[in-house]
């Protein structure tokens, strides 16, 4: 097994941040996706939606300034920000299902070469939280997955077919991992970029799914 350095979680988040267009309405999931808001390129304005019923989420509240009536979907405390609006859960999800969210960035347990997403339950636990993930998978205009390429046991999370319970079928557009950037295409998962120091063959060796590998695969640039 290759022991070359992989990208840090923050670097995965930086790469995802480049995908967010100016003016986009974006929902960030828990984990690496949450970090994405720290790295949006200067000059771009991104408006964050939270399932807790907040649009235009700004920075987190300072310690001692926490307000239990102002949280994001991860239970973190938000600061009041100009342009913020509040709404109830049925509207929060109407925005998602109704196709009003431009990009959702989600973590995953498995992504398949068809773009199937599994991110809500480890079968070994036997119970899990769906939360807002299935609605985002069904309703956001574009789904980007941000995750580690392999799990704790070194098994590929980029798979031929998901073996874990699905969150949504054929919903993922782009996968950014600590080894690669992968695009879901009709021909399969295309290797678009590799982590610095990694060859496409080395990334393929860490991947259960068979990747479509173009002649030139650049290193991930930030």
């Amino acid at each position: 097994m290759t022991t070359k350095p992989r990208l840090e979680r923050e670097v995965i988040a930086m790469r995802v941040a480049r995908e967010l267009p100016d003016g986009a309405y974006v929902n960030l999931g828990i984990g690496i996706p949450t970090l994405v808001s720290n790295y949006v390129p200067e000059g771009r304005v991104v408006i964050y939606h939270s399932e807790s019923g907040v649009l235009n989420c700004g920075p987190l509240a300072e310690e001692g300034e926490e307000d239990i009536d102002l949280i994001n979907a991860g239970g973190q405390f938000l600061k009041k920000a100009p342009g913020m609006s509040f709404f109830h859960s049925a509207d929060a999800f109407g925005m998602i299902r109704g196709g009003h969210i431009d990009v959702a960035v989600l973590g995953a347990l498995q992504v398949s070469e068809q773009g199937d997403l599994a991110n809500w339950m480890l079968p070994s636990r036997g119970i899990g939280n769906i939360g807002g993930a299935m609605d985002l998978a069904a309703g956001a205009k574009r789904i980007i997955v941000a995750m580690e390429h392999t799990d704790r046991d070194g098994k590929s999370k980029v798979v031929r077919r998901c073996t874990y319970p699905l969150t949504g079928r054929r919903c993922v557009d782009l996968v950014v991992t600590d080894l690669a950037v992968l695009k879901v295409t009709p021909a399969g998962l295309e290797l678009r970029e590799v982590a610095p120091g990694w060859t496409p063959a080395e990334v393929q060796a860490q991947t259960e799914a068979t990747l479509v590998i173009p002649r030139d695969v650049p290193e991930i640039a930030l």
Binding site: H88, S89, A92, F93, I96, R97, G126, M134, D135
Partner: peptide, 19 residues
């Protein structure tokens, strides 16, 4: 309690629950 079979669960996506 769920693991002991003492409570039931109907698991619903959050937006479906609200709707």
């Amino acid at each position: 309690l769920y693991r002991e079979g003492k409570v039931e669960l109907e698991l619903v996506p959050q937006g479906t629950l609200a709707e």
